[in-house]
Amino acid sequence: MTRAKAKTQRLVLLSLAVGAVLVAVFLGMSAMSSQASLFYAPGDVQKMGLPLDRAVRIGGMVKTGSLERLPDGVTIKFIVHDETTSTIPVRFTGIVPNLFREGSGMVAEGRFEPDGTFVATEILAKHDENYMTPQLAGQNMHKSESLE
């Protein structure tokens, strides 16, 4: 009698555990489409159009000579390019990471404005010279081109 009861209990617990995992995966996946941010390289914007409705990440090289500071002292503008001819103008208010400089790779999180300007909420820091986000790694852009 108790043995049978224990068996039922084990079955109930097992189905609870499986259910919990399924619920987690289902909720996680359905939130993925609205909360995860897609990654755009300058070339992708041309191909896929401007994603205006959501936060995205962009990545590429900061074009040499494009970095300028706006009169408020805390906002900067620069242009991001890649091996294609496309570029993205970026605006950012804040303190940039230590390893952010012209001619170097960068990744930023933020939104596009209808005119194509990317307003960054965050510029992701590189932890050191060898660090690059996985997205940049494939593009062979981790090496500084300032030595040219």
């Binding site: 996680g28 939130a31 993925m32 909360q35 941010s37 897609l38 990654f39 990440r57 999180e109 997205q135």
Partner: peptide, 13 residues
């Protein structure tokens, strides 16, 4: 497809 799953997703779920 390159995507990044960051704080908005983790916090929400």
């Amino acid at each position: 497809t390159k995507i990044s799953v960051g704080p908005p997703w983790f916090n929400t779920v």
